[in-house]
Design a binder for these strands. Structure first.
Lengths: 342, 342
DNA sequence: GTGAAAGCGCTAACAT
DNA sequence: ATGTTAGCGCTTTCAC
């Protein structure tokens, strides 16, 4: 008849609640709440008794309940493309740093370049009621986020633009960076320049290709179809592309690599060859200085920081039209891009 | 008198609840719950009406409320040391992969090597009621986690052991790896070998130093105090250490670098010198193959995977004594470690 | 097959 | 300065 176990024992290993603390300290529930949250209106003596009970019981406030009541979770979600890609380390670190400064936690996950997984993850974060969302898009249709955004989830896209919706976006200047890199090769005398990039449906890949074409056109140079290769960045594919461009009677004398993974593989492939081939890569790489690799560097940390700051401005009530920035890139000459044509 | 706005408008941007969906679909609350959670006992027709209401309202289940009721959050916390360190990318990716396979989300943050921040972060995750915690320790006293662990938060430590508590731990064999690396240098004729490592209170740093000393002793070689330098891994400190060991009448002829950051700086510093100095580094580095750097490689992904799997075994009810594994390392000869003494 | 009632642990609003 | 009450949005239990 009487109530037996107050709580079923699968729950939180039976953690003490504020009610338990209140009972032990001989005070009311609200007083415990005041102490836990550092609210005023508690005498030092009462506070001490409550603190003792908290210690004795090993109490820790249950933020799930708090969130349910308050409506804000003080957490933001980050949907990455691949946590293991060194490019995203500094980016997510910068996001975390900003989140921390605003007292928020970061919940994150990788989409593994899979649009479905991106959606699944983003929506799971919305179900957790993150206050905001930073997304590095894998897919090219983000209308699935519209109801969430209307419901108040602040959302910022980074590194690639959102598809089919209007939203705050932070990008690097892929077009300008690639154009500058290719122009650099042209300035060093190259006329046959190859471009190896990521799959064309990836926005940055398309933009970088556009930059390449623009630079070639600026210089009045033709572009042979055989000099352009887009596709997955797996080493085998890239190696084959490099080999193909260097074969035949009129091989390219220089290569522009569309991202860090392509650059790495290209360097490996070129290392085994005798005829020097100039190379400029998009994205900086650790140890590129020692290897003398000329790159177009983008600032991953600035990307993350800018996006996160924008997100928190939105959460602080900023209400204006979606906004888009392109952060500049910088050409870092280190030798490989300054090799003259063979 | 009558109730005006049902919910204050700061809450979730006034998101629809199951109650709203139920009203719109003309069914009971519990029926909506059944549909949302795919529970049986709903006729196809009712289900359709509920789904329509969900679509029309843009409803998404509030997991905070769900968690409060169910007691499990289906999320695990990861406390890293530094997200921007390339070593932790694959590790956290592996953790995330396992979490995903178990239907859990990953909440993470970096401690920035600060014990206080580690504690703050870990406890914040506990307040969120993560089901489990994976910690890469910065501090050396983890008794603060005892109440949480007793309360049922499964906890696994990775890369470094927990301090002053018993807990599941997954490590790399730092001692054995360093010993093998130094033995490798000895085998190539070196007798004066320097060791540059991280601060000595970091467990891995201490273990690697111990491995160094063991290898020297195995070979019957003395260790001059001037050959050992421990401290922060900032480039300036490491450069100075390298310079000091290479100065004087009896300079070292080989260096063992205690981790990836030290290795990178050492390579840069050695690159500017004429006399060849052998080098073996702990941790593999991207492009190390092209630079010909011999390393002791640890498998960061395996570290993360092993820890996460252990965590979920615990969450699945495994109840046994704390357990500790050391994953093997592997020596990868690439040239720099096979240089004979000058 | 469906729904009403209770309550998870907390905070807001209002007593006292 | 402190306590009481209601209710956040959901799941659980049990009744129909």
């Amino acid at each position: 008849m009487a109530e037996t176990a107050r709580r079923p024992d699968h729950r939180y290993g039976n953690r003490p609640t504020m009610k338990d603390v209140a009972a032990r300290a001989g005070v009311g529930l609200k007083t415990v709440s005041r102490v836990v949250n550092g609210e005023p209106g508690v005498t030092p003596d009462t506070e001490r008794r409550v603190q003792e009970a908290i210690q004795a019981l090993g109490f820790r406030r249950n933020d799930s309940a708090r969130v349910l009541r308050k409506g804000r979770t003080a957490s933001v979600g980050l949907v990455l493309e691949d946590l293991a890609d060194p490019f995203y380390g500094p980016l997510s670190r910068a996001v975390e740093e900003v989140a921390r400064a605003h007292g928020a936690l970061l919940i994150n996950g990788s989409s593994a370049e899979d649009p479905e997984r991106e959606q699944e993850l983003a929506l799971a974060l919305c179900a957790r009621r993150v206050d905001g969302l930073i997304v590095i898009p894998s897919g090219d249709d983000h209308r699935y986020l519209e109801p969430e955004m209307r419901a108040g989830v602040a959302t910022v896209f980074v590194d690639r633009p959102a598809g089919r919706i209007e939203a705050d976006t932070v990008l690097s200047d892929s077009f300008g960076g690639a154009r500058a890199g290719v122009a650099h090769l042209v300035a060093h005398g190259h006329r046959r320049i190859g471009f190896i990039g990521d799959r064309p449906r990836i926005h940055t890949a398309a933009e970088r290709l556009r930059g390449y074409r623009a630079a070639m056109e600026d210089a009045g140079l033709p572009v042979d179809d055989a000099w352009v290769s887009l596709g997955p960045t797996e080493p085998a594919r890239v190696r084959a592309a490099v080999a193909a461009m260097l074969a035949g009677p009129e091989p390219v004398t220089a290569l522009f690599a569309g991202n860090n993974r392509v650059t790495v593989t290209a360097v490996r492939e070129l290392a085994g060859r005798t005829r020097p081939v100039a190379l400029v890569g998009f994205d900086d790489i650790e140890l590129a200085d020692l290897l003398g690799i000329t790159v177009i560097a983008q600032d991953a940390a600035a990307l993350g920081r800018t996006a996160a700051e924008r997100l928190f401005r939105r959460l602080d009530g900023l209400h204006e039209a979606p906004w888009r920035v392109e952060l500049p890139t910088v050409l870092v000459p280190r030798g490989s891009g300054e090799v003259p044509p063979a």
